[in-house]
Design a protein around this nucleic acid. Sequence first.
DNA 1: TTGTATGCGTTATCAC
DNA 2: GTGATAACGCATACAA
Lengths: 344, 344
Amino acid sequence: MSSLPAASRSTILEVARDAGVSKTSVSRYLGGERHRLSIAMQTRIATAIQRLDYRPNQMARGLKGGRSKLVGMLVADIRNPFSVAVLHAIEQACRARGFSLLVCNTDNDPDQERDHLALLASYRVEGVVINAAGRPSAQLKALADQGTPIVLLDRSLNDVEADAVGLDNAGAIDMALGHLLDRGYRHVLYVSEPPEGASSRQLRLERFRQRLAQVPELTGETTCLPMQRDNDALRQTLHEFMSGGGPVPRAILCANGNVTLQVAHALNALGVTLGETGLLGIDELDWCALAGPGITTLAQPTEAIGQATVASLMQRLEPTGRQAPPRRTEYAARLIARGSTRRP
Amino acid sequence: MSSLPAASRSTILEVARDAGVSKTSVSRYLGGERHRLSIAMQTRIATAIQRLDYRPNQMARGLKGGRSKLVGMLVADIRNPFSVAVLHAIEQACRARGFSLLVCNTDNDPDQERDHLALLASYRVEGVVINAAGRPSAQLKALADQGTPIVLLDRSLNDVEADAVGLDNAGAIDMALGHLLDRGYRHVLYVSEPPEGASSRQLRLERFRQRLAQVPELTGETTCLPMQRDNDALRQTLHEFMSGGGPVPRAILCANGNVTLQVAHALNALGVTLGETGLLGIDELDWCALAGPGITTLAQPTEAIGQATVASLMQRLEPTGRQAPPRRTEYAARLIARGSTRRP
DNA sequence: TTGTATGCGTTATCAC
DNA sequence: GTGATAACGCATACAA
């Protein structure tokens, strides 16, 4: 059995010929209109499809009806475990509904984001999930005008009308500060990446400051730094905080998983004892139980977030759901207390 | 400025009309044949494209020439940081060459793998990168016969002719055992996930046994377990190893990053002191420096692996490269020594 | 240098 | 029930 070189895929026409029927009938068979065909024809078509190992060409299908069966997803940082967890849930949900996911990583670069958005449009994706890196409002508006539903993931864009799904950021900060207070900490350093262009970062930062003003038992500071590896600036900042003159005991609150990682590295380098100095991070990471006495975290319900995202999208795809006003879906964080917030 | 509902995207025909030229000329303009057009026409077309915000429809484009500009990637476990790192590199490389990446996660499920492979075929992807979960030989053969280049990532499939890229597994095991020997360990437990269907796991396991037979100073055991969370079986196995009667000092060698994580959790629960008992893991993870005295690892060059993968694919896409015999590209691991292999 | 005509594989609109 | 046939948006052989 010699394999023919470049045996081009069979088409609906070949199936029709093989079965001795018309293209139309085959198309109907595939398009969920079997009930309109005679049993005899159904079986003949089924046989032909099997024999030729026929697979419909999604390109052609998309060209004709505008139904690409594709959902596009823009991820700001594919190496972020939180993003991947949500991505995973989204992919499953899409798949369950007959959609495939075209994933684009923007590496937090607005330029790449713009390019990728254009790309997704050119593939006529039927919906877009975007974990925005910049403010691609123009592109998104173009998509929206074209009738493509958009869901904003984790980060909102206030100048674009779209559903949004994410964490209850204010609630998370409240939960974090409540826990730290419970555990007896009195002075908190909030460490974040620069909040520009990431609404969730802004919201968390804002809420932190707000709560500080409201809760007299608590004082604190904030610092925003880019989080590369071997971060001297971060180490320096932490060092100053640790040796500063504020109230004690002190604690550090990390705005997201990436920050938690870098802060943990820096504290490690500084020889800080976790617990004595509190440490709490937003985002659960699979190693948090392993670092020192374990790092206390606020887990985001990634599965629920992913499911809600796709649910929103699918609703907008229904003829009835198109017009509804934008809706924001928020989920509460879940506290996972570990040794890093247990004072000796 | 009221936004028109569902303002359908403009087509090449509208651009042509707007510019007062023929479709063909516009098509040429976009297809990299501008040099064949008069300057006047070029500018008119450019203007029209801008004004209409025209974007070529990739679906139609792919339909005509079979050039979907899509590369499909099947990843066995999207939540594995190693896979994501390689995925990241592959995406960048594809993008640099004008291709987009259609990513499918199979969750190590051969059924999902088969489905996704069919899906990729239906989108007429021009190449496939597969980090195989099962033995989808039939599907891959169909793709290959159809002329679609395939690259096997990390895991080989011996009954399918395709390029392969991955780690030098034997070399990595040698390096690991050499390091453990250097550091004075004498008895090694090799922990792996079940190797069935993952060639790299098989190769590493085999080599471990082989080296043990060759090196008289070293004795050891192997165990293969599925790596879920809260793994009682694993904890039990490790406990027995630690309290067993073999030579000392003892060390544990983890077959991949996932194993390292679970073993670290189990050792943590058992209260084992790292270093006194050696621990070395294949795959570098970003928290390895943080667990106890730091975990020694063998890093895979994920960037190089990703680049080589795409390079292979692109070579096969050239008319000249189609016929070349399958080629295997292997990269050496890099040792990152930390406290977990430093005896007190 | 530019334009015309045809076809890619599919679905939808008609007729029969 | 079933089958021609016309789009869908684009690239390309061919003609001018």
